[in-house]
């Protein structure tokens, strides 16, 4: 039932710096833990996140096992044109999730 949550202001003034917040449900299993019977729990993490603004990448991040479960990311960009922000998370075991948000620049 993983689903991402993104928070982008609906309207911003041209040239204004605005905050983008993203949250996604993911267990982020480190691969360093063992079960009570000594079986290693395989690594299952998000490895890469990117955000594009009208097709141009404005933020990306590599994730490692130390990142907490349900990673929350917040970053900033400058409002240039009205358009779409596309978010993408990629991870182990073929994990892939996307989200979109539109921003209107006045």
């Amino acid at each position: 039932m993983a689903r991402p949550l993104v928070n982008v202001p609906a309207k911003v003034k041209r040239g204004q710096v605005f905050e983008i917040k993203t949250l996604i449900a993911h267990i982020m299993e480190t691969g360093f833990r063992y079960t009570t019977t000594g079986q290693r729990i395989p690594r299952d993490i998000i490895t890469f996140f990117s955000c594009t603004y009208n097709g141009e990448e404005i933020f990306s991040a590599d994730f490692y096992p130390a990142v907490s479960a349900n990673p929350f990311l917040t970053f900033y960009t400058t409002a240039t044109e009205t358009g779409t922000l596309e978010f993408k998370w990629i991870g182990d075991n073929g994990f892939s999730e996307t989200a979109n948000a539109t921003v209107t620049v006045e």
């Binding site: 689903r3 949550l5 928070n7 917040k21 949250l23």
Partner: peptide
């Protein structure tokens, strides 16, 4: 939008 429990609230709504 930053409270991680929101993920569960939305699942609960579904």
């Amino acid at each position: 939008t930053s409270n991680p429990a929101t993920l569960w609230v939305l699942d609960g709504e579904a």
